[in-house]
Design a protein around this nucleic acid. Structure first.
Length: 166
DNA sequence: GGCATTTGACCGAC
DNA sequence: GTCGGTCAAATGCC
């Protein structure tokens, strides 16, 4: 799926724990701009119509060819079936299905930045340039680049970092 | 012919 | 030895 970046497939592997192969992509600007971003795409076992996309690393190819200026980060929180942007702008999310992959969430509050992997059956979320992540037993907070976030191509962040429908 | 994808081989970590 | 990630030659498409 198009997430605004050019990806080149460089490998595919059958994963032992999964019945579907995992595909490996690197940014198309790996060589001309030294971009180290990669992503892994794997079909969900729970719902074969869904794909689990894991982003690794950050793009060095955004915002110009020499010295990209990262936009100010936002924080999105996944907790109690309510999805918020910048904590103050609380909005109900359509058909909210919180991530249930508890085994991938650290059981302490240690910040971690990658990989980022989330599943939203109705509105797949693609994160790019995630700069920080904090997880606890009942919440998950992501710090990300709002310009590079889409909710299944249906919702996006506009001016004032308001989540709105396209 | 050039570029993207496929796929087996290779390598490092465990 | 096994597994996951990457490499690179082979292949296909435009």
């Amino acid at each position: 799926m198009d997430d605004g970046h050019v990806w080149r497939k460089y490998g595919q592997k059958n994963i032992c724990a999964s019945k579907f192969p995992r595909s490996y992509f690197r940014c198309g600007h790996k060589y001309d701009r030294g971009c180290k971003a990669t992503r892994q795409v794997q079909r969900s076992e729970e719902d074969p119509s869904m794909f689990v996309i894991t982003y690794m690393g950050q793009h060095a190819c955004v915002g110009g060819s020499t010295s990209p200026t990262p936009p100010s980060p936002c924080v999105i929180s996944f907790g109690s079936n309510t999805y918020t942007a910048n904590a103050a702008q609380e909005k109900p999310f359509p058909s909210p299905i919180p991530p249930s992959r508890d085994e991938e969430v650290p059981n302490d509050s240690t910040p971690w930045t990658s990989p980022t992997e989330l599943i939203f059956p109705d509105f797949p979320v693609y994160f790019d340039s995630v700069s920080g992540c904090h997880a606890s037993a009942d919440s998950l907070n992501l710090e990300f680049n709002p310009e590079a976030l889409e909710f299944g191509g249906v919702f996006c962040f506009g001016q004032g970092e308001q989540l709105h429908q396209k």
